[in-house]
């Protein structure tokens, strides 16, 4: 039996557990991960506390080139040590974005997002530490795309990009 096998070989049990932990960790950092969110910056999309989300880590660094404006991204905060944030993608390389907050001083300043960077903002602009503070975010710091809400139970489901691409027929008419 498995149990008797490992009871007779404690070192083997430790080793197999370590190997399993490495595999699980790599899965969570490169494929898919579930984690809790906290903070007011993404209200009303995510509550201040108690929401759990699932992140698709295959979008790290935008290596699949599939991130679109309006997607939610999980990234390493460039001005903090080993802290992650979740924000909404507002600009990709080459886009022109507003640097300030609408309705406040400096709202008319624009910047072109440099190569290899993006512009991220929180949904709750008044309580968000985002690109308005730390500037363009290097795509290399993006860990993944937030794809689903897991908890609270009643609100769980896939998160869809709220922005629809403009139809050419609408532009023409």
């Amino acid at each position: 039996m498995v149990f008797t096998h490992f009871r007779a070989r404690p070192f083997h049990l430790t080793l197999q557990t370590f190997k399993l932990m490495c595999a699980v960790h790599l899965f969570q950092t490169h494929v898919f991960a579930v984690g809790a969110t906290s903070g007011p910056s993404m209200c009303p999309t995510f509550a201040v506390d108690g929401d759990w989300v699932a992140t698709d880590m295959t979008h790290a660094r935008n290596r699949r080139k599939e991130l679109r404006i309006g997607d939610l991204v999980q990234y390493r905060i460039p001005i903090l040590e080993n802290a992650d944030g979740i924000k909404r993608l507002v600009g990709l390389p080459g886009d022109y974005v507003c640097m300030g907050t609408p309705g406040e001083r400096g709202e008319d300043q624009m910047i072109q997002v440099p190569e290899g960077h993006c512009w991220v903002l929180g949904d709750n602009l008044t309580a968000s530490r985002d690109s308005r503070i730390f500037g363009p975010l290097p795509l290399a710091l993006i860990k993944g795309k937030v794809v689903a809400r897991v908890l609270p139970y009643g609100q769980s489901g896939w998160l869809h990009n709220p922005l629809q691409s403009a139809e050419t027929s609408q532009l023409g008419s």
Partner: peptide
Amino acid sequence: NRDLERGMVVTLRSPTQPE
């Protein structure tokens, strides 16, 4: 990325080319 000193040779992900 802890206790960095001036003169150290480091590897980093290029800010302009993420890969």
